[in-house]
């Protein structure tokens, strides 16, 4: 790797990403996007003890790219909305399971925060592709 003195080559940002990819491992998760309901298992440490917890909810956004990518999932916990943000590259993530594919029209479905009950349902995505 070499940079020209005085000004930066245009690929410098790519280089930073390359190095970040080398240093941080992003596991192979199933593809999911906003609107999908997923179940995330992650380890939590309580002092010396370690245990696995799951969090199931609707993905309301994915943001960032490469090793810095995060996703936010929202669930209703006894009529109170709870959101959690996970880095995709977090070493604490154990498993991401697809529960339901949702059909939504945008990449960030923040409008879901204002909706409750029946209005907060998301249509399931149907696969009409011929087999």
């Amino acid at each position: 790797m070499h940079l020209i003195f005085g000004h930066l080559e245009p690929e410098v940002m790519d280089k930073i990403k390359d190095i970040a990819n080398k240093l941080v491992e992003v596991k192979n998760w199933p593809a999911f996007s906003a609107g999908d309901t997923i179940s995330v298992s992650y380890t939590i440490k309580e002092g010396a003890k370690e245990r696995i917890q799951t969090f199931q909810g609707v993905v309301i956004q994915r943001r960032g790219s490469g090793t810095a990518e995060t996703f936010t999932i929202r669930k209703m916990s006894s009529s109170i909305g709870v959101e959690r943000i996970f880095p995709l590259s977090s070493p604490f993530l154990e498993e991401i399971k697809m529960v339901k594919r949702g059909s939504v029209r945008r990449a960030r479905i923040f409008y879901l925060r204002e909706l409750t009950g029946k209005a907060a349902r998301i249509k399931e995505k149907m696969n009409f592709k011929k087999k």
């Binding site: 790797m1 070499h2 940079l3 410098v12 280089k15 970040a20 240093l23 941080v24 090793t67 590259s89």
Partner: peptide, 23 residues
Amino acid sequence: GRKVGMTSIYSAAGKNIPCTIIE
């Protein structure tokens, strides 16, 4: 050296640490 840029990596304890890459 020359500053390449910043990124973040995870420590052994799983903490996300901001860091600078220098050539």
